[in-house]
Simulated assay, not measured.
Amino acid sequence: MMRKCVLVTGATGLIGTALIDALIDQGYTVHGLSRGEQQHRSSAVRFFQWDTDSGKVDERCLNGVQAIIHLAGENIGAQPWSKHRKQAIYDSHVQSIRLLYRLLENREHAVNTVVSAGATGYYSHRGDELMTEDKLPANDFLGRLCLAWEQAVAEGRRLGLRTVSLRSGAVLATAGGMYPKLVKFIKTGLGAVPGTGRQWMPWVHIDDAVALYLFAMEHNGIHGVYNMVAPQQIQLKPLLYAIGNHLDKRIWLPHIPAFVLKAVLGQMSELLLSSTRVSADKIQNAGFRFTYPEINQAIASL
């Protein structure tokens, strides 16, 4: 019996790397898309190259593929948001999936499902209001970006594809992302709370993020948009203190005022100062069960 094949874009990123390992464990073969040449220790994985800037992609990446998991896109928080940087972020998230759809339009294929990354930046700063998937997007850079990203993914429906977008909170993992940076600062005694600390911080453990992509891919009843956040909603100050407690380190420095963050980071300071309280009810009602629903469980595992 031929094993199912999944195409993963952004395959060498934080989630992509963990996801490929999980797919192999589940008996899938994997095609990965990457900008540069890559190799994997497993014979079940084969990499292909693409360049979203020039619109080039190795068409062989779709041979035998039944599902696409789309994780590609520039890191939103990696650099300050200049006009040029904003355009690069937009193109990498929106145009990359359209490049694949153009490829699907012009050849025979077996793809029936597309599961894409998304972001809770769709909601941006909403104070204490609980964000469910039916809320309107924020009218700022992140809100407009995430809306365009989801709309581009949904264009696959006209090709007869089942499409899913997962609005992810901060992914907590030891291999990258926000968590190791927070641990480093707290361990060295430089831990401080940005802004008031009362801003809600949506989060999800890396293992649950990977499991959610598999769940969305494997369940045909899942379609449209779902929040990818842990059920326990937590504010930034308690989150930092929880990490400090597990490290047996006190956070003693004063809060960093919002105006200081804005002066240093510019508009990108929104990532730290926005309060986004996000509901996990929809995906739980669809049958998904979190391994790490609470922050202390998640930090202890990390």
Rank of each mutant, 00 (worst) to 15 (best):
T12C: 13
G27P: 11
S124G: 11
R126D: 06
L236I: 03
P180G: 12
Q87N: 11
Y122F: 15
V115Y: 11
R126G: 07
P137L: 04
H205I: 10
L261Y: 09
G160L: 11
Q233P: 03
F185C: 00
Q232P: 03
I206H: 06
L23I: 06
T113D: 06
M201N: 07
C146A: 15
I69Q: 13
L130Q: 05
Y213R: 03
A263C: 00
K237C: 02
T188P: 01
A138D: 08
R85P: 05
G127R: 01
R158P: 03
A78N: 07
R126M: 15
N106V: 01
V260M: 15
K135R: 01
T196H: 06
A110H: 13
G197K: 01
A44T: 11
F259I: 13
R60E: 07
G143R: 10
S168P: 02
R198S: 08
A67K: 09
G121W: 13
N112H: 15
H255C: 01
F48G: 03
S275C: 13
S124L: 04
M217H: 00
A44Q: 15
E59V: 11
F47G: 09
D25R: 14
C5P: 00
D207H: 02
L23V: 09
I97H: 02
M178N: 12
Q297D: 12
G32I: 08
S92F: 04
